[in-house]
Write a protein that binds this DNA or RNA. Structure first.
Length: 268
DNA sequence: GCCTTATGTTCAC
DNA sequence: TGAACCTAAGGCT
């Protein structure tokens, strides 16, 4: 589930639910227990996301850092909550709601300096006001690596995952193997502003929808369909199926361990 | 029920 | 480049 929009959506939700109040923080599973005891009963000051990283601040030197990885999930329930079921890494309970975290790749307490180090490893995040797309362009402009690989590199750009990568390249007709430095600055600016818009939509809806109005099922005279993750997309996980625009079969390939999808005809 | 797969990252070689 | 990690859902039998 987690590309950047998911984390920003969670940040927004957790801020609304829990910020400004004292919260109980515990680790029923135990793996986060020592850190949890250091913030348990404290006032949660704010929650924010940077790329796919979620930060719950209890003070400048007490920041809970969560990265969901591929499997991590938050669930929530009104208080009083039932006994935790399964492996709950962190349970955070406020006055009206509580939330359980399972299966994250990271859940740890960080100091201010550690948070700064984390941020310095991340490229600009299309979902953050403070993002500077020029920083990403500087990396792209001197790289022979494919744009498909660069879009997924969190040091270049923070928050884009496998779905947004495939979809934004399709929407701009960019062949995925194009070297970063051959993209051109103007094209990059268009891609960036499209990501800003697409991902903001993802934060609002909680799903990834990338199909333009003119290609929607009703307009194209085909049956409505949704990707497994709940949204409507052009090429992601549609290998072998006809392109929604030109009917050419969608291709797939392994690119450094991740599945890449594209239309060889629309993206030339 | 078992097997595969997955919107991710890190570490060892 | 490949394995490891953590969990759940879908497809298969």
């Amino acid at each position: 589930m987690p590309e950047g929009h998911t984390l920003h959506r969670l940040a927004r939700l957790h801020h609304r639910r829990y910020a400004g109040t004292e919260v109980r923080v515990r680790s029923p599973q135990g793996r986060f227990a020592a850190d949890a005891s250091l913030v348990d009963g404290s006032v949660l000051e704010r929650v924010e996301a940077h790329g796919k990283h979620l930060l719950h601040s209890f003070g400048p030197d007490r920041v809970v850092h969560v990265h969901l990885g591929l499997y991590g999930k938050f669930t929530e329930a009104p208080v009083p909550m039932e006994e935790p079921r399964g492996k709950v890494r962190m349970r955070l309970v406020g006055s009206t709601y509580g939330t359980d975290l399972r299966g994250p790749i990271a859940c740890q307490l960080l100091t201010g300096a550690e948070v700064a180090a984390l941020r310095s490893r991340l490229g600009p995040d299309p979902l953050r006001e403070d993002a500077d797309p020029e920083r990403a362009w500087e990396r792209l402009a001197r790289s022979r690596t494919s744009i498909a690989a660069l879009l997924m590199d969190q040091k270049v750009l923070a928050g884009v995952g496998n779905v947004y990568r495939a979809e934004v390249l399709f929407r701009h007709g960019i062949p995925p193997h194009t070297p970063g430095r051959e993209l051109g600055r103007e094209r990059w600016q268009l891609v960036w502003s499209d990501l800003v818009e697409l991902m903001a939509g993802g934060v609002r809806s909680g799903r990834i929808d990338t199909v333009r109005p003119e290609h929607e099922p009703e307009v194209m005279g085909r049956a409505p369909r949704q990707d497994r993750h709940g949204g409507e997309v052009y090429v992601y996980r549609r290998a072998g199926q006809p392109c929604l625009v030109c009917a050419t079969p969608v291709l797939t390939a392994d690119l450094s361990g991740r599945n890449l999808y594209w239309c060889p005809s629309c993206q030339q």
